[in-house]
Amino acid sequence: MKNQWPLWEVFIRSQHGLAHRHVGSLHAPDATMALNNARDVYTRRNEGVSIWVVKSTDITASHPDDKAELFDPANSKVYRHPTFFPMPEEVKGL
C-alpha cells in the first residue's frame, strides 16, 4: 500500500512574517491527508503556524550538471551584495 502513496514535500512557516521553509517529505494518498500527516510528523514540537504540502512530482528542479553556468558567474561579484547599508537593530527576521 505504502508504495502507491505519492511523496509530498512539506513546508512550514515557523512564525508570522517569515517565509515557509522546506522541512522534509512524507507519503500520503492525497493533499488532505498529506496536511494531516505533516501536522503530526513535523509540528509536534510547536514548530509552525502554517503548513504547505506540494506533490514532489510537481516540483521542477535545476539539473546538477548545469551548476557551472547557472551559479558560477555570480561568484566574486561583491557589488551585488547590499553590505554597504547599515541595518537598524529593530529590523528582525532578515
Partner: peptide, 12 residues
C-alpha cells in the same frame, strides 16, 4: 503502525 505517518499520528 501501517505506515510511518500513521504510526506517529497515533502515538501523538
Amino acid at each position: 503502525g501501517p505506515a510511518l505517518e500513521e504510526d506517529m499520528a497515533l502515538t501523538n
